[in-house]
Design a protein around this nucleic acid. Structure first.
Lengths: 232, 232
DNA sequence: TCAAAAGTGTTCGCTATACACCCATGG
DNA sequence: CCATGGGTGTATAGCGAACACTTTTGA
């Protein structure tokens, strides 16, 4: 490496800017977060959120999507910025601010990342100590997700195309940390009119075989444009 | 100015980072935003949001508070980060990302800024075209404020220490763009138990002289810690 | 055959909403 | 004296919360 140091000069000092991604997934039972093991210093060998330096020709969301693609192979997952972290000493390499993003993916669609780095899904209550201030970023992301799901149907981003009512309920309970009554949850969801049964209801009227549903985004958009607010 | 150019050198290019402040105030009738007239290029002479470059030894919120102090003389107003804007060409000087903040101030406590720059309060429907992408930032700030006030009693940050019920209602209506029934608004607010009458209810039982209230933050914190959610 | 999982409907209480009248003041 | 602004209470409807029973399958 003979790349010259000091190629880029400015009249005033500038911080580095990175994007980080908190990628949530749901395995049918627990809410999980995708972490990568750092291959280089600082914090080599520790687990961290996927992230990297912002390129000069990309926006923050583009940078975050690039990270997401590298780690999961996914191009079109739900992703949004939720907070920018700027503590002066959050990175031992110097002044680095990070624009943190929240991504929701269908875990079954995730392929192993391009990166050689080891990556893994962690239960939220089994996350090891993380590099940098990523513990705090993760906690803030959980909070942002909880607030988000109260009013927007983002839960469906975490589920397969078709899913059962108990799965959906379990997901909501995992994220919000509360328990709902089965009957109330079900009827509330169904009365919203944003779910459609797949119709595949074979043989026997009912039993232990749950009904499969699909989220209908068109109906949700209509619902929302009428001024109704989803609330859970 | 003989300050050398190129004093600060890095192996990779870095964006500049600024903080901007959307400062809202309420004059008893309309919701207003504080703008400053730019004294230098680019966009010299245009109105813009107060803001400036992030210093290397301050966090984003500290930078935003510094801007707020410079423009209003206020140290302790409500302020929070709401979004980071990173479009590649948002600033003609080069790559500049800005961490945008939302501040709520009591307009009566605002002193003219230190800066020589002209500053002024604008009705939200009479804002001129702004410099950079500040039109968009302002629109996003309005949205963030609306979403915030739905569930947090931030409205009180905009009102004087004591205020009347009609004032409070008018503020909510201004921000949310809806009309409430006087009786319902009043009883909902009072039943929340987060307001206290100042007790200064002179002479005649009642009349055109409105009752003065004060926001009781302690009661609100108790209310919230019990898991209740404010909603408007 | 028994436990576990899934489906379904009713009642009750609270809260949001709609709505009308009285009083005092200032013009 | 009348228009305006402010205070207060009641009736209804809809929604959230609590709750029990039946069916089927797998152990």
């Amino acid at each position: 490496m003979f790349k010259e140091k000091g190629q880029f000069t400015y009249p005033y000092p500038r911080p580095s800017v990175t994007t980080d991604c908190v990628i949530f997934g749901y395995d049918g039972k627990d809410l999980k977060v995708l972490l990568v093991e750092r291959g280089i210093e600082p914090f080599k060998g520790m687990w961290a959120l996927p992230g990297g330096f912002l390129q000069m020709d990309e926006t923050a969301i583009q940078g975050a999507k690039r990270e997401l693609l590298e780690e999961t192979g996914l191009k079109d997952a739900y992703i949004e910025q939720f907070h920018t972290f700027s503590a002066v000493n959050r990175d031992p390499r110097g002044r680095v601010i990070t624009i943190a993003h929240l991504a929701l993916v269908k875990i079954s669609e995730v392929k192993g990342g391009d990166d050689a780095a080891r990556a893994g899904w962690f239960n939220l209550d089994k996350v090891p100590q993380l590099a940098f201030d990523h513990d705090m970023i993760l906690r803030e992301a959980e909070k942002a997700l909880r607030e988000k799901i109260h009013f927007e149907p983002v839960g469906f981003e975490l589920l397969p195309e078709v899913f059962t009512m108990p799965q959906l309920q379990n997901l909501y309970e995992s994220i919000l940390g509360v328990r709902f009554d089965r009957r109330n949850f079900s009827s509330k969801m169904l009365h919203l009119g944003i779910l459609e049964a797949t119709g595949d209801r074979p043989a026997g009227t009912s039993s232990r075989i749950p009904i499969l549903y699909r989220f209908n985004k068109d109906r949700y958009d209509i619902f929302k444009s009428k001024g109704f607010r989803l609330e859970f």
